[in-house]
């Protein structure tokens, strides 16, 4: 089954309920804990996993995720060891796994090499925040599509609907990533009615499922998104849960599991 098919299948299994994509940085706080954290996400009810390859200069991320990137690198995480971890995760769960990475780790590994490896290992797609559609020299979209991998288009608050449609049409991804506010990841987003109703418009013009992220930290926000989006994306709040657990000497994987269970409570309510 291709990654694109697996993602589409997962959306269909949700039967209209809002899904949850949970994000963490691979290798944070270390590889062994990180593997347990991703497993815990899958077994606690997440619908998709977004696994970020650690990088020194994550320019779209806020302090929590930046700090997690640096900690993962300090702990010795490499792109190879990150991919090994995800390939093991694939063997234990059918949850769609998307790699979030900035361009340079992909370039350093080799674009074709990492896409081949991802496809071979049964990973499902890529989210690349510093790859705009008008710098297409690397041809990431075609290379992903040829391997059945989704390259998820990112739609910003100021992206026009016309442009959003063009970005979706140029992509084989079953869903788009709607960024819910300006700035970087982390700080809680106030979900204004205007922003929520835009999600419906994005779904209409793109004809794709819509996953909404940036500053989604709490169950109430997931509930607010439930009627308008197909999936909520939560990242920094989970990184923070890991950090708090570590500070208290508790198990970070259990803390992430508890937070994910709390967030998915919104799906059945």
């Amino acid at each position: 089954m291709s990654g694109i098919d697996r993602i589409t299948g997962r959306f269909e299994e949700l039967h209209g309920r809002v899904g949850l994509m949970t994000h963490a940085v691979v290798g944070y706080p270390d590889l062994r804990s990180s593997a347990r954290i991703f497993s815990s996400m899958a077994s606690s009810g997440a619908s998709f996993i977004e696994a970020q390859l650690p990088f020194s200069d994550p320019t779209a991320d806020g302090p929590s995720i930046v700090q997690a990137n640096h900690a993962a690198l300090r702990a010795g995480t490499t792109t190879f060891s990150s991919l090994d971890l995800l390939s093991s995760l694939r063997k234990e769960t059918t949850i769609p796994i998307l790699i979030m990475s900035y361009l340079n780790p992909l370039l350093a590994f080799g674009i074709d090499a990492i896409l081949d490896r991802a496809a071979r290992d049964g990973l499902d797609g890529f989210i690349v925040p510093d790859y705009p559609d008008d710098e297409s020299e690397l041809d990431l979209e075609a290379k992903c599509a040829a391997r059945g991998l989704a390259l998820v288009p990112l739609i910003a608050p100021a992206t026009t609907l016309i442009r959003a449609r063009a970005l979706a049409e140029a992509s084989a991804s079953p869903f788009i990533y709607a960024v819910m506010r300006l700035g970087v990841t982390g700080r809680k987003t106030e979900l204004a009615e205007e922003a929520l109703s835009r999600l419906g418009a994005l779904r209409d013009v793109t004809g794709r499922r819509v996953a909404a992220g940036f500053g989604i930290r709490e169950r109430s926000q997931v509930e607010a998104l439930a009627l308008r989006a197909d999936c909520a994306i939560v990242g920094s709040a989970l990184i923070d849960a890991i950090g708090e657990a570590l500070a208290k000497g508790l198990d970070p994987a259990a803390a992430v599991g508890a937070k994910v269970s709390d967030l998915v409570g919104a799906q059945v309510s």
Partner: peptide, 9 residues
């Protein structure tokens, strides 16, 4: 080049 996130476009 100009490898910027969509939000800065």
């Amino acid at each position: 080049g100009r490898y910027i996130p969509e939000v800065l476009r």
